[in-house]
């Protein structure tokens, strides 16, 4: 295809865009809505992933040993558990450290400190704090502990509350994700239909040119290319505008994100900026594929070449 032909195809597509201006605006608006909803779905996924990560970092299993368990027994338990593949890290807190931490935690409570001082010996046992490689591994780890010969040395284990919290996050995020997916799906379906209709109208408004093109020996691709290009222009503009609308919203959401992740420094806008090429690339690819598919259907139905 020569430069002259390519230039003509671009001119033709551009003309079609302006000739049906309002239809073009409606088409782009629907694509913008579709991709804003896709972007929100993306934001939601990023936030829920981050929330789970933050909570996961806070999750651990604490094994509180009996007061009379010796240090060597606790350390033996630690060595035994180190061999468990699901375990990422084990922190040993000795009886003395446990007492120190307890005192610091309750330093404002004179009654507790006084009661502690009245006791002749350290009432607290040693603790092993276990971090799993994956949140789902904790039940297995607890099973390993329960079935080990060291179980009778352990007075108490703490885990359950965090598990419920993570399940709640997952549940809420799954539900919102489901609604988001349905909304995005509906918008994408509508944009497919709108692109189909826009290309149909474009074919209709160009019917004279098309008939003359055919008459003077234009190839099928020469006739079809402007319509394909037009649908690609809609998609690219739609995705770009959706991203331009999403960006300022990220700034508005950020204070809420900060208040939710108190001690985390997660920045949504920064995340988008760092991954902008990947996000736009995938969205451009999706819109180009869908729009091209939609316009091919329209051309097969309405453009006999």
């Amino acid at each position: 295809m020569s430069i002259s032909s390519i230039r003509q195809i671009i001119v033709f597509a551009w003309q079609s865009f302006w000739r049906n201006f309002w239809l073009s605006i409606v088409t782009i608006t629907i694509i913008v809505l579709a991709f804003i909803s896709v972007n929100f779905l993306l934001i939601l996924n990023i936030l829920s992933d981050n929330a789970i990560k933050v909570v996961q970092n806070k999750v651990d299993v604490s094994l509180y040993f009996n007061h009379d368990a010796s240090e060597s027994q606790v350390l033996e338990t630690q060595i035994y558990l180190s061999a468990v593949p699901q375990i990422d890290d084990i922190t040993y807190i000795s009886q003395a450290q446990a007492l120190e931490q307890f005192k610091q935690k309750h330093q404002g409570d004179a009654d507790i400190i006084q009661s502690l001082n009245e006791l002749q010996e350290n009432p607290l046992g040693a603790t092993l704090i276990i971090k799993a490689k994956d949140i789902g591994d904790y039940p297995d780890i607890i099973d390993v502990v329960n079935n080990s010969k060291y179980n009778n040395l352990i007075q108490d284990k703490s885990f359950d509350d965090n598990e419920v919290f993570i399940d709640r996050i997952k549940e809420v995020s799954d539900n919102v994700n489901r609604v988001g997916l349905i909304a995005s799906g509906i918008f994408i379906l509508i944009s497919l239909l709108i692109v189909f209709n826009t290309i149909r109208v474009a074919i209709y408004t160009h019917r004279e040119e098309i008939s003359i093109m055919k008459l003077v020996g234009a190839t099928n691709w020469y006739i079809r290319s402007p319509f394909l290009l037009e649908s690609i222009i809609y998609g690219l503009l739609g995705v770009a505008i959706a991203m331009a609308v999403t960006y300022p919203i990220l700034g508005l959401i950020q204070p809420y994100v900060n208040s939710f992740f108190l001690d985390s420094t997660f920045n949504l806008a920064q995340y988008f900026s760092q991954n902008i090429i990947k996000i736009l690339g995938v969205e451009f690819l999706i819109t180009v594929l869908l729009n091209v598919l939609s316009s091919i259907f329209a051309m097969r139905k309405y453009l006999k070449v």
Partner: peptide, 11 residues
Amino acid sequence: AFALQVSGISL
């Protein structure tokens, strides 16, 4: 020119 454009003839 419209007839020539389809054959890729230059301006």
